[in-house]
Structure formats: C-alpha cells, structure tokens
Design a protein around this nucleic acid. Structure first.
Lengths: 204, 204
DNA sequence: CGCAACCTTGAGACAGTTCAAAGCTAGTGG
DNA sequence: CCACTAGCTTTGAACTGTCTCAAGGTTGCG
C-alpha cells in the first residue's frame, strides 16, 4: 500500500542526522534497517533522549501538522529508512481512510507508550528503570520476529542513561549488578537476558 | 461540525471517574467545563499523573484503536464533557478527511507535549519543574482566552507533585520559595504569576 | 462546629550525582 | 598487521537534592 508514496530509501551512517528541530517538517520516516534515537534539548543545552527507533517503526509522528520537526533524529549505526513525503500521504489519505487510520493507530500507540514511560521516569528506581527498559526492548524485538533473549544494544550507555533520566555511571553500576546476579550476560554490544522472569519481577 | 456526533454532554462531580484502564474503549471526550487528570499505575500500586485536561482538550486519545483505555481519568472539580462515540467519529471520518486530520493534529500535539515533558521529568530540578509547569498552564489558559497571569489550581499539591515526579513536601517548599521571592502569589486555590519573566528564566 | 483531608515546615536519611582516574574498544594510518 | 589515539565504559569515594518521617497548621465539607 505504501509502495506508491515511498519517495526514496536512503542510507545513513552512524551519528548522521535524519532531521533536526530547526528543519521544516515534510517527511515521515519508517526505519528500514538499523536504529535511530530522537532527542530534544533545553535552552541551557541539556538534552533528553526521547526515544529509540527500530525497523518498522515511524519517526517524526510528533511533527504531523507542525511547521517544523519537534526533535532531532540521529542514526545509531549504519541504517536506512523509507521516506514518506507527508503531502503525498495526506493526498492519498483523502481517498484511503485506511491509511489515515493506520497513522492514527501508530500515533496513539506511541502516545500510550510515552505515558507509560512517564511512570518510569517519575516513579521508578534506577534498577526498575533499567529492568523495564531491557524488557521493553525485548518485547519490541520479539514482536518484530527477532530474539527476545539476545539482541544488540546499538545505543551507548550514555544514551540509555540519558533516556532513563540517570547518570552514565549509575547505568554502568546497574548493568554490573544485573550481571553479577545472573540476570543478564553482556558481550560487547550484545546482551543476553539470562533470566527474564527475574528481570520482569524487578520492573516495579 | 462535531455537533452531529456528540452523543451527550454529561456532568461529573469532583473525584468522579470518566473512565478506567479496565473499561472498554468506545468514546473520546472533550472537556466542556472544569478539569480532569489522567493517571496510570504500576503493578505495585504506585501511580503517575500523566496529564491534566482543561476545556477544549481531548481525553482518551492514547486509547484510539486499542481494546481498552490506557489510563484512568478523574474529574478534579465539578466538570462536564462532550462524549464522542468513536465509531461515529470513524464513520464520519470516512467521508470527511478533515475530521481525521483534526484528530491527527491533536494527537501529534499531545505527543510533542509529552516528549517535552520527558525533558522535564528526566533532566530538570524541582524549581525548574514547577516553573515550567506553571508557565505551561499559563500558556494553555491564555491560548483559550483566559488570563495568563491569574488562574485556579484545581489540582491538589499532591497531584502536581506526582505529575512532576516529586514529593508533595518538595512542591510545597518550592511554592513557598517562589512566593518569598515574589514570583507568585497564592490565595487559596488561586495563583497569580507576579513575575512571568523571572519564572521563565527559571525554566532551565 | 468538628472532623477528615490537605498543606506546610523541620530534621535526618539515602539514592543517585559528581568528580576523578583507570581500563577497554574500535577505528586510523603508518 | 600492529601501534596509537579518542571515545566509551567501569569503578571508587565524597557530596547533595530530594525523600521520608514526624508533627503542627489550615481548609472546607457535612
């Protein structure tokens, strides 16, 4: 269905920018391969990682009907995307309510996810935060047909820490503790969830 | 436009529930008068206030195309809403792309707001949090044609604290400090922003 | 008017931060 | 193919913003 409006499928290098807050909004992106992070920043330079995006997921939904993007999106590794020029999506949507409906579904799911994430940021301890985060990644990968137990952490410790509202050092310590307790095994960028039940129990 | 699908306009008492997480999703609500809060809760009983809603604002958007609501909505004062049965919204949307477009806009704005809120929860100090919150309320009221400087805090200190990821005691202390520094004046439930520039400067 | 819920203030405790330094890893060019 | 460097990660130790606990004030409803 979307084939008709995919403008191009483009490659990105690690740290390459997909769009910036100051860019005019024109295009929705769907991750084809690799992974991305989105960030927003406060006036004083502090940054918040607002999300990570994997194959099949939409980037830029929060900018729909806005003059410009509301965040900055950056590739975490060698990645590629499908670009959906929004004008075409909209034009096609007029005759295909299903398409708009698809978008509504994606948006409301991301919204629901963000509300859940507020609970994490506002109420959880560092261990609960990391446990919840790892499990959420696991479920997303599983949903897309990948292993729920073993996957690659393409984002840096610092990105994870920032996203979860913690200092890098804290994340590092919790990773170490989880490993000592046999919950996970880390080998380079690859993490294995050795005891998903125990991780689940730690989520709070 | 929406007149055709408004099912009823109903009144709610303080603390009365609009919907619960366990309720089947069927209806979108638009606040007509008063105010509401939405919350989600963790398995262990901890709760997070995910948002406050004032006249003209939609409640329940994150449940679109979901089997059930994703949060609980409760009236903060005597309030009323317009109920939009989603089936009718959807049916009408087929022939009126504008309507779906309206929904997309609302959703993406709420999404953008939530991303900004992550920055607050993850990176700001207690003073920055409260300053940002007060200013955000001020802008929302101004946008709807009410005073930007003086309005009623219909939610409890405890709701504010919870929403901002702080303890009630901390919020109380910051309110006191802001008052001592001449930033605000509080009289019962009414707050006056005495020095918006200074508050703005504190937002971080 | 009296009770229950809410708000404020104080003092001590602690989770997570900051600062500092050493270990590791991956990418680059000779 | 190895040596070198820059950036990332880990670990330790001291510090601090916010929380928790406790108690006294205030508000508003019935």
């Amino acid at each position: 269905m979307l084939d008709k409006i995919v403008k191009r499928s483009q490659g990105y290098q690690p740290k390459q920018t997909l769009f910036t807050i100051s860019d005019k909004f024109s295009t929705l992106y769907v991750v084809r391969s690799g992974s991305f992070k989105t960030t927003i920043s406060a006036s004083n330079g502090r940054e918040q990682v607002t999300g990570f995006y994997f194959p099949g997921e939409f980037i830029g939904l929060e900018a729909l009907h806005m003059p410009s993007y509301q965040s900055t999106a950056v590739a975490l590794e060698a990645s590629s995307v499908c670009a959906l020029p929004y004008k075409k999506v909209q034009a096609l949507g007029e005759s295909m309510p299903r398409l708009q409906s698809q978008l509504l579904t994606r948006l409301s799911k991301e919204l629901a996810g963000d509300k859940t994430f507020m609970l994490l940021l506002g109420k959880k301890t560092s261990e609960e935060k990391l446990a919840t985060y790892l499990l959420s990644l696991s479920k997303r990968f599983e949903h897309r047909g990948f292993s729920a137990k073993e996957f690659s952490l393409t984002m840096s410790r610092s990105d994870i820490a920032n996203h979860l509202g913690l200092a890098v050092e804290t994340i590092s310590r919790v990773f170490t503790k989880f490993q000592e307790n046999g919950l996970i095994v880390i080998d380079g960028k690859t993490i294995t969830l050795a005891n998903i039940n125990k991780i689940q129990a730690l989520c709070g």
